[in-house]
Simulated scan of single mutants.
Amino acid sequence: MTERINILTTGRLGEDFQAAVKKEYNPEALKIDYFVEIDQNILDRYDALACFSAGKDLDLGRLDWIHSFGAGVNSFIENPSLNPQIKISRTIGLLGKKMAEYCLCYILAPCKNCISNYENQKNRIWQQGKITDLFSSSVAILGTGEIGRTVAEMISAFHCDVYGINLHGKQYPQFKKCFKLEDFIKNPPQIDILISILPSTESARNLLTKEFFQKLSKLHFINVGRGDVIAEKLLLELLESSIICQATLDVFSSEPLPEDSALWNNPKVVITPHQAAITDIDDIMMSFTQAYEAFKKGENNYLFIKLNRGY
C-alpha cells in the first residue's frame, strides 16, 4: 500500500498521539487529525481510526484499519458494522512488564504481610505476622501471548515454577510447561497462584467454574485480563470456602465496580481500578510504528488480531 493513509484519533491520549505521529511521519504518507468527539460524518472521511474504544452507534464498515491504544479490542470487534477484511492492531508496548510488576507487587504483599504491617505501624503495634516465601511457588498463567510470556519471564526470576495455559498447548520457553486449555480446566496441576490475562471472548466468559476450582485449594487468584472470566457470585463463594484464600482483582464484569458489590468489604480481596498496566504514549507509538509498517505493506505481525478469535 503506497497511497496516503488518513487516520482519525480521539479520546484519551489522542492529542498526544497526533503530535507524536506528526513529528515522526511525513504528512504526504500519513495524515492524522484529532477530534475531542467524533460522529459518523467525521468518521466517514478517514481510512483508519486510532483510539481506545469506539461507540456502538458508529458504523465502522468503511475503515481499512483500526489501531487500539490498549491491549483490548472488544469495543471494536463487537461492533456489527465491521468489514470482515478490516485490519485491527493493538498496543502492547511495555504493558507486559508493567503487568508483571503489578502481579509481583500483589503476590509479594501477602507473602511478606505488608498490609498488616502497615496497619500495625499506623497503630504503633509491634507484632510479627506470618511470613511466607515466593520462591518454589507454582504459578499458572491463563494466556501465553506477548504479555503473558513477559509476565512469566519476570515471575520466573523469583525461582517459581511458572506454567502457561493456551488453546492448543503450544510450548514457549518462558514457561516450565504449557497446558492445553481444555486439559488444564479438566485436570489442573496443584498450583499456588493463578493469574488470568485472558481477553473477553465468548469462550472465555465464565470459563472458570466451581468444578474447576474444587480441584484446587488455598489459591491466590489474580485477574488482570477481563472480569467476566469468573462470575462474581462464584468468586465470593470460593472466598468464603477458602478454596481461594486471596483474590487480587484489577478487572470486573461491570466497571466501575458498583458500590454495593460484596467484594469491597471482603478482607480476602484486594481491589484496584483497572490499572495493572496503564498505557502511555510511548507504549502506543512503539506498537503503532510496527503495526503501520506492516499495514502499509499488506502484512500482519503479532500486533494484529484474528477477528474470528477476538484476539
Rank of each mutant, 00 (worst) to 15 (best):
Q171N: 15
R205G: 13
S196M: 07
T150D: 04
S136Y: 13
I131T: 02
L216E: 14
F213E: 09
D161S: 13
F179I: 03
C160K: 06
P199H: 11
S136R: 12
S203K: 11
I165A: 13
A204D: 10
S156T: 11
K210A: 04
C178L: 01
F212Q: 10
F179N: 07
H159S: 12
D133P: 01
C160L: 07
F184T: 11
S217R: 15
G143E: 02
E153C: 11
Y172D: 04
I141M: 14
I193A: 09
F212L: 04
S200C: 03
V139A: 05
I141Y: 01
P188N: 02
R149K: 14
L167W: 00
I155H: 06
S200R: 14
I185E: 06
G145I: 03
T201G: 01
S203R: 15
P173R: 06
M154L: 13
H168W: 10
R205P: 00
S156E: 11
T144N: 05
A204K: 15
A152S: 15
K176T: 15
A140F: 05
L207I: 13
F213D: 04
F135M: 07
G148V: 05
E182K: 13
R205W: 00
H159F: 00
D133S: 14
I195P: 08
C178M: 01
Y163M: 11
V139N: 07
C178R: 09
V162G: 14
S138K: 15
L167Q: 08
S137P: 04
D161H: 04
Q171S: 12
R205F: 12
A157R: 10
L207Y: 08
L167P: 00
P189D: 02
T132P: 01
Y163W: 06
I147N: 09
E202A: 14
L219C: 09
K215V: 02
T201M: 01
T144R: 05
S196Y: 02
S136P: 07
I185W: 01
Y172K: 12
F184L: 05
I165D: 00
T150R: 11
S203P: 05
H159Y: 10
S217I: 00
G169T: 06
F135E: 08
